[in-house]
């Protein structure tokens, strides 16, 4: 038998019990568990040493709700269930593409949107599309409920605005948007992305949203590139300007997965391709 790291697993029945179980210990001593596919790796490798892990499995958050066209995804819904919803594919195509490209099928049976967000990995395949879709995070905690846009929730690599005892209950997507997502990886299947580009067009605001991930510690919205795309279907020159802006302005780092220069070139190319896919979509407003 493998030695296992020492933590107590608690399985609360209600959000209040879960919050209390997290709050009574100091920072870093207690961690919430959704799918666990990322958290348990850090525990195994000693990067995290919680004394208590609080399972969210009994909380009623494995949900997918439509309010008109607005989508609310419960934080513990397995990604595979999100990918399998036929309406998600039509109304939030970029979200569908991003989700179905996370890990493997078996991983997506356990991994969750809430977990991906809270773990805030630099190369998260999901945070860029959440940014491009202006998703909002619904939180519950000792001081009550609050809602924070994803752009303000993700602070840095592995750091979020989550306060002691707080939990992500759901993620909300306000409006369907023509959107798409592309990645570059060393190995296409079940690998961590070197570059992620997510693009969406907001029909209500007639503006583009462009986000990149994997290139720097924090997934980032690129406002200048988005503005370069204009207020509708962009022409080739506008797409070129947006790609150049992204290559020039996005933050890039060199790490073991790719060099800064490689990422810089790739972001421009992937941005052009992603915009072309979105602008060519049938749902795109004329």
């Amino acid at each position: 038998m493998r030695p296992v790291s020492g933590f107590d697993l608690v399985v609360p029945e209600t959000a209040e019990e879960a919050i209390a179980a997290l709050q009574t210990l100091g920072p870093g001593e207690a961690a919430p568990l959704a799918g666990g596919t990322d958290l348990l790796l850090d525990v195994d490798e000693g990067r995290l040493t919680p004394r208590r892990i609080v399972s969210l499995r009994r909380l009623p958050w494995r949900t997918l709700d439509w309010n008109g066209d607005s989508l609310t995804v419960g934080s513990t819904l397995p990604l595979r269930s999100l990918e399998d919803d036929p309406q998600v594919r039509v109304k939030y195509p970029g979200l569908y593409e991003a989700v179905r490209n996370v890990g493997s099928v078996a991983l997506r049976h356990r991994a969750t949107l809430g977990g991906n967000l809270v773990r805030a990995a630099p190369a998260s395949d999901l945070i860029p599309i959440l940014l491009a879709l202006d998703a909002e995070v619904d939180l519950v905690g000792p001081q009550g409920d609050r809602t924070v846009p994803v752009d303000r929730f993700v602070l840095a690599s592995r750091r979020t605005d989550l306060r002691p005892g707080e939990l992500v209950r759901s993620v909300r997507f306000p409006e369907p948007r023509p959107s798409d997502f592309l990645w570059q990886r060393v190995r296409p299947a079940n690998d961590i992305s070197q570059v992620v580009v997510a693009v969406a067009f907001s029909p209500s605001g007639r503006r583009w949203r462009v986000a990149v991930g994997g290139v720097s510690p924090r997934p980032t919205l690129l406002t200048e590139a988005a503005e370069a795309l204009g207020n509708g279907r962009p022409n080739a020159a506008a797409v070129r300007r947006a790609a150049e802006s992204a290559s020039a302005r996005a933050p890039f780092v060199t790490d073991r997965r790719a060099s800064e220069e490689y990422r810089r070139r790739l972001v421009g190319t992937l941005l052009e391709r992603t915009v072309a896919r979105v602008a060519g979509a049938k749902v795109f407003p004329a």
Partner: peptide, 25 residues
């Protein structure tokens, strides 16, 4: 570490990486 799939079993009929799943979960 969830990369190879050798530990795949079915949980309620769905594939599951048993190395990254707590038994009590």
């Amino acid at each position: 570490t969830g990369d190879c799939g050798a530990c795949t079993v079915l949980v309620d009929g769905r594939s599951c990486l048993s190395c990254l799943t707590l038994a009590h979960e």
